[in-house]
Write a protein that binds this DNA or RNA. Structure first.
Length: 209
DNA sequence: CCAAAGATCGTG
DNA sequence: ACGATCTTTGGG
């Protein structure tokens, strides 16, 4: 993919760190994300354009939700441009509003930092399911609908310090360092390499230009 | 049609 | 290290 487009997904992924996403009455400060580069990224669901990935080729800042391992849901922000099909997986965050509701949805994990740590857990804390697929994350909601939708606040002016590393669980392009997280944040998940990925160092990291 | 893989998670 | 659980995808 052209360098310009790679930079777009990465910039938008980093820009999501520190922002707040609200889902069905629970708000989370995003602390960990992964960029997926669409048609030219072998790890991206949009690497092959199918019915499932079609939404990734749609307007930016819509919600892409998929079922993971038959068990969990994972939430992504489509970032565009539409011909590329890029998106950002929301991996972890800190619950900053609706903590009681998040605890209920997550069945009371031992510690609150675990409420939205990991993409499946984050989606569950926010109450995100396939029903939310395609939600316009920037749409304004009437006050009466505060508890019903999913939305994203504006970018923060002061950005957190960011660290980067390889994406979790991918078997293709396993060394591309497109996972980004807030440095030192306790809600960031642990790195786990896919057992199906080739040995570390076998695949080249994404070139910066 | 069938089989396999999968952007996970909790437990052991 | 492993199993739960099910949808999507690709091959024959």
């Amino acid at each position: 993919m052209p360098a310009r487009d790679r930079a777009d997904v990465v910039r938008r992924a980093k820009e999501l760190l520190g922002r707040t996403i609200t889902g069905h009455g629970v708000s989370v400060r995003i602390t960990e994300v992964e960029a997926y580069g669409g048609r030219e990224d072998p790890a991206s669901h949009a690497f092959t354009r199918t019915a499932r990935s079609e939404i990734m080729y749609g307007p930016a800042y819509r919600l892409y939700v998929y079922r993971s391992y038959g068990i969990h849901f994972c939430a992504n922000v489509v970032t565009g441009p539409t011909e590329i099909g890029a998106a950002v997986l929301l991996r972890s965050g800190e619950v900053v509003e609706g903590v009681d509701l998040a605890r209920l949805r997550r069945n009371h994990p031992a510690r609150d930092v675990q409420l939205a740590r990991g993409p499946g857990n984050l989606a569950q804390a926010l109450g995100i399911t396939l029903d939310d697929l395609g939600t316009d994350l920037l749409a304004e909601h009437p006050a009466a609908e505060e508890l019903t939708g999913v939305r994203l606040d504006r970018p923060r002016r002061t950005r957190p310090r960011i660290e980067a590393g390889p994406r979790v669980g991918v078997s293709k392009a396993a060394d591309v360092p497109w996972r980004f997280w807030v440095a030192g944040d306790p809600t960031v998940s642990a790195y786990r390499r896919s057992p199906r990925a080739p040995a570390p160092g076998t695949t080249l990291p994404a070139r910066e230009h």
